[in-house]
Computed example of a mutant assay.
Amino acid sequence: MTAVGVPGVDVPDARGRTGLDRAGRDLTGNPDVVVRDVEVLSSSWYVLRRTTFDHRRRDGRWSTEQRETHDRGNGATVLLYDVARRTVLLTRQFRFPAYVNGSPDGMLVETAAGLLDDQDPETAIRREAEEELGVVVGELTRVFDVSTSPGSVTERVACFAGSYTPADRVSAGGGLADEGEDIEVLELDVDEALARVDDGRIADAKTILLLQWAVLRGPFRDRQSRAGR
């Protein structure tokens, strides 16, 4: 009988990858966690794994647990702002996962973002800003990195901010049509963007975090303080 290989493990999957079951097996940073087994459940595009590990609890008892992790790679996002005009540049596009989970039309307003695709975070977000927003980005500040949904998703997102002017907009943006992207560019007054957070029209976590940073500690901080006096 001929042995049948497992795509993504011992034979290439649709993206030519093997060894996807090795992720996590060599972790040693936490002596209270010992990885015993990693199974690849799906590797059609992103990778779904089921990991079995021993975990020493706070009372000293060991338990054997399983967790499924969704690995879509790491990403980057950027909030572009114009302090002089008090505007921010955002995107609006259809997101099926949001649509199937309660968003009325699946159209989300977000900061420009994308997966790293083997690039460093700053290079990747400069690429995304030009593709999605039509902006050639100048100096960037790396504000923070966040885990998007650490209970099940491995993704870590590098969050940047940078200034722009109308002259920096070199194209209409809109994303890459050959990748199925259909992105509307929105230029909003920062106070209007915050109002949309308050009433739920902006519900994307990374976008909310960066908008709040912008008025609490970032480029709009001084003006926001004067407005509250």
Rank of each mutant, 00 (worst) to 15 (best):
T2K: 13
G8Y: 07
P12S: 13
R15I: 04
G16T: 03
R17T: 02
L20H: 02
L20W: 01
R22Y: 10
R22G: 09
T28L: 14
T28P: 01
N30S: 10
N30K: 04
D32T: 00
V33K: 08
V34P: 00
V34T: 10
V35I: 12
V38M: 09
L41N: 10
L41Q: 11
R49Q: 07
R49T: 07
T51V: 14
R56M: 15
D59Q: 07
T69C: 06
H70R: 09
D71F: 05
R72D: 15
G73H: 05
G75D: 07
A76K: 00
A76T: 00
Y81N: 03
D82A: 05
V83Y: 09
L90H: 02
L90I: 01
T91A: 05
F96L: 14
P97C: 05
A98E: 15
V100M: 14
N101T: 12
G102S: 11
G102Q: 09
D105A: 03
L108H: 05
T111R: 02
A112T: 06
A113N: 12
L116S: 04
L116H: 00
D120W: 03
P121I: 03
P121L: 09
A124L: 00
E128G: 01
E132L: 11
G134F: 03
G134P: 01
V135W: 00
V137G: 04
E139Q: 12
E139F: 03
V143P: 00
F144R: 01
F144A: 02
S149D: 15
P150G: 13
S152L: 13
V153E: 15
V153S: 11
E155D: 10
R156S: 12
V157K: 10
A158W: 07
A158L: 08
C159D: 00
A161T: 00
G162P: 02
V170I: 13
V170K: 08
G175E: 07
D178V: 04
E179I: 01
G180F: 08
E181D: 09
E181A: 09
V185D: 04
L186I: 08
L188T: 02
D189V: 03
E192V: 10
E192F: 03
A193M: 06
A193R: 00
A195G: 12
R196S: 10
I202P: 08
I202G: 08
A203E: 11
A203D: 14
D204F: 11
K206L: 15
T207G: 03
Q212R: 14
Q212P: 01
W213M: 01
V215C: 10
V215K: 07
D222V: 01
R223F: 05
S225M: 13
S225N: 12
A227L: 12
